[in-house]
Design a binder for these strands. Structure first.
Lengths: 126, 126
DNA sequence: ATGTCGCGCTCTTTGTAGGGCATGGGGCGG
DNA sequence: CCGCCCCATGCCCTACAAAGAGCGCGACAT
């Protein structure tokens, strides 16, 4: 397993928060809910979707397959059935690396403010 | 004469033969030719496509990715650039790590120039 | 031999069904 | 009133298929 990060995670997110986090439209999240069995968030009494951190992970996996790897929706469904656990670890690793990257970017900002004179390092992409 | 000529003929397949072998329409093979750089068969003087065994292998790979694994065409193109589906996923991780490493190397350079600061960086949030 | 007819295969260009969402309307609740 | 709910419908590309035209080769007659 990838290392466990000590995040203070909210228990539930609204669809708007999830949409903002991944920069997608809420309609896309609702649409994927009709396409992927695994993406079934809780709902409040009123009917609003309540996304747990686990739901976010599921969404992230789908997002990775469809938007970053180029699977069709049926193709992504198959992969999630067959190689779900293995795949999840890879996605976790990539996500952890992205967090580290964000941290480093922030760290450099602080160092720039403190030192501020030399040419800034090129920021890693992706 | 029959021996030699038959041998030469077997070096190449027509589009109809390839289509029959994979049970697809010739139009699909031509379309994929416009989408995948690697699928460029020789052409006769007349302009007819001549598929070598290597071309057949290339087509088989594309067929596998698009029809059996469920990749989109852009997704399959990306995979084709690599040297194998499993390798590709490893390469993703390695590539990410290399980017982070390059960033860190550059960051260390900056720290050498800037000298030591006691400004404690915060843990990455999230 | 040689015209020529037709058939099968190919070519390129143009048409199109459906996948993958987005948008708009009407309603509700905090 | 803003944000979310649920539909229904709209709509733009992707991923091919169909249409229309041309070549070449065998058969058959000349």
């Amino acid at each position: 397993m990838p290392y466990k990060e000590r995040d203070i995670e909210k228990q539930y997110y609204t669809i708007g928060e999830v949409a903002a986090q991944f920069d997608v439209a809420p309609s896309l999240i609702r649409f994927w809910e009709t396409e992927f069995e695994d993406l079934k968030p809780r709902k409040s009494k009123k009917g609003n979707r309540l996304y747990s951190p686990q739901d976010i992970e599921t969404f992230r996996t789908i997002y990775h397959l469809v938007k970053e790897r180029g699977y069709t929706i049926p193709g992504a469904r198959d992969i999630m059935k067959q190689r779900g656990p293995q795949l999840k670890e890879k996605v976790d690793v990539i996500h952890s690396l992205e967090k580290v990257r964000n941290f480093l970017v922030q760290l450099r900002k602080e160092l720039d403010v403190a030192g501020k004179q030399q040419n800034p390092a090129q920021q890693p992409e992706q």
